[in-house]
């Protein structure tokens, strides 16, 4: 449990948010041309990093907007919060 600095609402309790998992997984441009392996990679395979991870969050019980966050999953320390579409910071 931790406090998240929502880029739209400011600091709120983590329980107001829901996590959307790993960020920057790009949806395939030509889905019809993908092999089964490529689909599996896109849909299911995850880095599941122990350490600094880029992830998507949604302020579900607040502004309901999506944004990105950089967090160390080994200690829940948050390094950066940035809006969708913005360039990920270098950590």
């Amino acid at each position: 449990m931790f406090v998240i600095n929502c880029p739209y609402c400011g600091e709120r309790d983590q329980s107001e948010f829901s996590c959307g998992g790993e960020a920057h997984i790009v949806r395939p441009k030509q889905p019809t041309e993908l092999s089964d392996d490529e689909w599996a990679e896109y849909l299911f395979m995850r880095k599941n990093i122990k350490g600094v991870q880029f992830e998507r969050w949604n302020h579900a019980h607040g502004c309901r907007k999506w944004f990105n966050m950089v967090r160390d999953t080994s200690n829940d320390k948050i390094y950066a919060v940035y809006k969708m579409g913005e360039k990920p910071p270098v950590i």
Partner: peptide, 18 residues
């Protein structure tokens, strides 16, 4: 919970979230 950490050492990705 650390399966993905070991998998990453072998250059493998697993469909897991810890």
């Amino acid at each position: 919970g650390h399966s993905s950490v070991i998998a990453n050492m072998a250059g493998l990705k697993l469909p897991l979230e810890s």
